[in-house]
Design a binder for these strands. Structure first.
Length: 918
RNA sequence: GGGCAAUUAGCUCAGUUGGUUAGAGCACUACCUUGACAUGGUAGGGGUCACUGGUUCGAGUCCAGUAUUGCCCACCA
């Protein structure tokens, strides 16, 4: 016997290892069939499971389990990302507690330490993912820094270099002083910042200073938010069209504090309206100034160290000072020197490191880049042609927009934890830029280097490998094929590449999705996936981003603990639309828990009755054709047929929704089918059958219920894997060792079955209408406060003789559904009793002598009458409109005609009733 | 500054190509501790679909504009 309560924890602890150990998540490319594959967006190895993962992976697992049940050869590859900066930070923090820095250990020892950390803690998120129920093939688990992925990275770098798509360049990069590394543009987050806007006088060269303490007589006014970079200024610029400053062109000005003379240049970049219309140009510390400097051949003076302190070029006084301290010092000195005119407050956008949130510095340095334009073009074409599709489609616009304005990708990072750049430098004289070769290994590099005249006898240790590592995304962009064994030729690549769907959030379309497209097309000659499914972000109840520091985040593991993994999955699927972000609070997850309880109890109900039914076995219904055998010769009621039709429709609905990635609608379809159709209606109907004392009938009803339940259970399995597996075994649909995850997705009734069981739309509509009558009858009871225990007599005035006959034959089910003493059906004769709601088949009545306030009833009837007349008027107007009858589809016009008749009849009845109460 | 979304019941959201009287969950009201389930049942209340125009026989749905909110991108020093 099933327990009174579903024990989710026990079930989860039992079934996940069962699936995994039996290899049910595994995939075999040799097994043939239609391939369906997904690669998981690899979470950071330092990560812990958050709601974003829960949403993202639930969607994927639903798709994967659905495809698997449909018989596709299905593979979902899991893995983690080595996450350069994040991981290095974690280990450095640990070192700091020991009072050491990574430099104290040296590169090799430090990396050993990181690997040690990875071995010890890197499995955290991988274990947490199992809690969600993900059916990932763990035998294929990959790590972006594992041997295979690293080989792929090195090959890709070398190939791109040989193709001229990787180059080393002088460039102004975003620099995080805390992380000590360059950041890609996308890794910088801009935030509004209120800060000073200092107006500074730059004296025109040769203009004498007035009497002591007086300002220079002749000066230009420059406004800046970054006074600390002043020592790096190598020009000031004005707009060439700015008449106010035309006279300055070609002159030089004196840089305050240093006395260095710098030119005045004209450049379109300068906005005449902003500030004073004069800009100081600091090519080494601002990306725009860098470009201006290039255009005008200006010197680039780097006044800062990598850690955000000032260097010797800033001047002896400021050397070693933190950049923000230096700002204060320089402002003070400017003021003392009479250079500072005034200061305003201004709001501008300041870049922050996406990892550590430190204010990002623009810094001139030597970095490695990937030329993106040639790679982007085919990636754009693939989406334009429809070969790759965004779901929802609108994301393609954002993708195009970014791709068309793409900048070269700075791929070098000044870290230790990551794929080291396979560039090897040859010995060079002091001050000379060394030559380098790029090769897959030191050996290959040596061979290459020896071909260079003068280096024929070079030894391996004479080559110095580049100190930098590659951006983490440089390995992630290969993920769809590096995980399948590339650059080796593998069966997995043959069969499973390209993957079918990529499921991810909108925030990494640029970081990751676009780049995977480029790499996939470039190296595999095929885009890495056919559909890019973009879902929203999980937000806190107030719409803000979830973050640990705000304390507004929900922990999926806590939700699993409180409500079960199934509840988490189902709830999140039900409340998430691909169209927009999802706001969640803890209470929303009760939906899933309550649903699991509901189906559990329905199962208990069936089991209870199965025990009373001799020879009944759920196993007999395990395959979809079984019901036909079990029901051989049995008579089906309209309600039985209705349920079978509803089951067909539910299966089609869920299938259709998932086909279109409408995860939410699929959840709603299976939810409504289970709860409303099976539990609310059919289980209640079945109770009456079981109590009816007809053994054959009871067996038929139980068989229909059990067969349909089994279909519903399988429909639900992709959403709620654990409870469905548990019930399947508890009831005995499955033998030990089998799994619902390998059971076929439910099919619709075959034509033969439909014919044998008379499953027609007509039957369906009849039962729906009958239920409306039941609802109307119950409403009458409620309205007149007749307790459920009190038996009443219902009379039904059917629309016509045919309807009367059909309902009379079915009166027993009406009687029990209404808990009525008796139900009588006849055509017409409605004046003798109190009316219920009008429905398609007729009117339901309940004699209510003595229970009625005639005045109140009259008021109600009058109200309904008014309403009906209003509707009729509208319908008649519509039908009188020739344009409507000419243009509208025939079906719509027919509906209106039918409605007109219905309303007219209704009004006639109501009028008679009004007389009755008058 | 540019772009993209959103605005439907008290709350969170569906509403797929325009087509009967706009739906769900939660919350709310009344009744029901009835033998699967109170994590439940039955019935009910609640919406001029942000606003203004337009197209159409017909608009929550399409178009234009306005307002509000959110997100993304961007070099305003």
């Amino acid at each position: 016997m099933m327990d009174k309560r579903y024990d989710a924890k026990a079930s989860e602890a039992k079934w996940y290892p069962f699936w995994e150990k039996n290899g049910f998540f595994g995939a075999d490319p040799k097994a043939g069939g239609r391939p369906y594959s997904i690669v998981i967006p690899p979470p950071n190895v330092t990560g812990i499971l958050h709601m974003g993962h829960a949403l993202n992976q639930t969607i994927q697992d639903i798709l994967v389990r659905w495809h698997r049940m449909k018989g596709d050869n299905t593979l979902w590859i899991p893995g983690t990302d080595h996450a350069g900066i994040a991981t290095q930070n974690v280990v450095e923090k640990a070192l700091k507690k020991e009072g050491r820095r990574r430099q104290d250990l040296g590169r090799e020892k430090f990396l050993e330490r990181v690997w040690e950390w990875k071995r010890q803690y890197g499995g955290t998120i991988v274990h947490q993912q199992r809690k969600l129920g993900n059916s990932t093939d763990w035998s294929r688990e990959r790590f972006t820094f594992d041997e295979g992925c690293s080989r792929a990275v090195t090959k890709v770098f070398c190939d791109l270099y040989r193709e001229g798509l990787v180059y080393k360049g002088n460039y102004i990069v975003n620099w995080c002083p805390r992380c000590g590394t360059a950041l890609a543009n996308d890794e910088v987050e801009h935030e509004p910042n209120r800060g000073g806007f200092w107006y500074i006088r730059y004296p025109v060269a040769g203009s004498a200073k007035g009497v002591a303490g007086e300002p220079y007589k002749d000066y230009v006014m420059v406004a800046t938010t970054r006074p600390e970079t002043l020592p790096g200024d190598t020009a000031v610029a004005v707009n060439p069209k700015d008449g106010r400053y035309a006279h300055l062109a070609g002159k030089t000005v004196v840089l305050p504090l240093s006395g260095r003379e710098i030119p005045v240049v004209t450049d379109d970049y300068v906005d005449r309206e902003f500030g004073t219309g004069i800009v100081k140009i600091t090519p080494a510390h601002d990306p725009n100034d860098f470009l201006v400097g290039k255009r005008h051949g200006l010197e680039e003076i780097n006044v800062m160290n990598g850690d955000g302190t000032m260097n010797a070029l800033a001047g002896a006084k400021y050397e070693g000072m933190d950049r923000f301290k230096c700002r204060e010092a320089i402002v003070a000195d400017l003021e003392a020197g009479g250079f500072l005119d005034h200061v305003e407050e201004i709001e501008n956008q300041v870049g922050h490191c996406y990892r550590c949130h430190e204010t990002v510095e623009s810094r001139l340095s030597r970095q490695w880049f990937v030329k993106m334009k040639p790679l982007a073009e085919p990636a754009v074409a693939a989406v334009k042609s429809g070969e790759v599709r965004f779901v929802p489609e609108r994301w393609s616009k954002i993708y195009f927009n970014w791709m068309e304005n793409i900048q070269d990708w700075c791929i070098s990072r000044q870290l230790w934890w990551g794929h080291r750049i396979p560039a090897y430098y040859l010995p060079a004289a002091e001050g000379e830029e060394p030559r380098f070769v790029v090769a897959e290994s030191r050996e290959a590099a040596l061979e290459e280097a020896r071909k260079i005249p003068g280096f024929e006898n070079l030894q391996a240790d004479g080559l110095a490998q580049d100190e930098d590592v590659l951006d983490t995304w440089f390995s992630s962009w290969l993920w769809p094929f590096s995980t399948m064994g590339w650059p080796e030729k593998t069966d997995d690549l043959d069969f499973y590449y390209p993957t079918a769907d990529l499921v991810t959030a909108q925030d990494i379309i640029f970081f990751w999705v676009a780049r995977m497209m480029m790499a996939g097309i470039h190296f595999m000659k095929k885009p890495p996936f056919r559909n890019i499914v973009i879902h929203g972000i999980v937000r806190a109840a107030d719409g803000s981003k979830m973050s640990k520091s705000k304390g507004n985040s929900l922990d999926p593991l806590e939700l699993i603990d409180a409500y079960s993994a199934d509840a988490l999955r189902f709830s999140i699927a039900l409340i998430t639309s691909l169209e927009c972000d999802t706001k969640v609070n803890k209470e929303k997850f009760e939906i899933g828990r309550n649903f699991a309880t509901k189906i559990w109890n329905a199962a208990r109900f069936m089991q209870m009755n199965a025990e009373k039914t001799e020879g009944f076995s759920f196993a007999d219904l395990a395959d979809d054709g079984a019901l036909a055998r079990v029901l051989e010769g049995a008579a089906l009621s309209d309600d039985d047929r209705h349920l079978l039709i509803a089951a067909d429709r539910a299966a089609a609905a869920v299938d259709g929704c998932l086909e279109k990635y409408r995860i939410q609608d699929g959840a709603l379809a299976v939810y409504g089918f289970f709860w409303t159709q099976i539990c609310d209606w059919y289980v209640e109907y079945a109770k009456d059958a079981f109590n009816g004392g007809d053994a054959a009938r009871s067996r038929t009803v139980l068989s229909v219920l059990a067969a349909v339940y089994w279909r519903a259970l399988r429909l639900l399995h992709p959403y709620m894997p654990f409870v469905t597996e548990e019930i399947a075994h508890q009831l005995g649909y499955l033998a030990e060792g089998e799994s619902i995850m390998r059971a076929p997705f439910p099919r619709a009734s075959t034509d033969a079955e439909k014919a044998a069981w008379n499953l027609t739309g007509d039957v369906f509509d009849y039962v729906e209408a009958k239920r409306e009558m039941v609802t109307a009858g119950r409403a009458l009871r409620a309205e007149y406060r007749i307790p459920p225990a009190q038996a009443v007599r219902f009379e039904i005035a059917a629309a016509d003789e045919a309807a009367a006959a059909r309902m009379a034959a079915d009166a027993d089910s009406l009687k029990s559904a209404l808990r009525a003493e008796s139900v009588s059906v006849s055509a017409g004769a409605e004046d003798r009793a109190m009316p219920g709601t009008l429905v398609r088949l007729g009117t339901i009545y309940m004699p209510l002598d003595g229970l009625v306030d005639k005045a109140a009833e009259l008021k109600r009837v009058t109200g309904e009458l008014e309403k009906a007349r209003g509707f009729l008027k509208g319908v008649r107007a519509k039908l009188a409109n020739e344009a409507f009858t000419a243009h509208a589809p025939a079906e719509i016009v027919e509906n209106q005609r039918a409605r007109e008749k219905e309303l007219a009849a209704q009004i006639e009845k109501l009028e008679r009733l009004a007389k009755l109460f008058a």
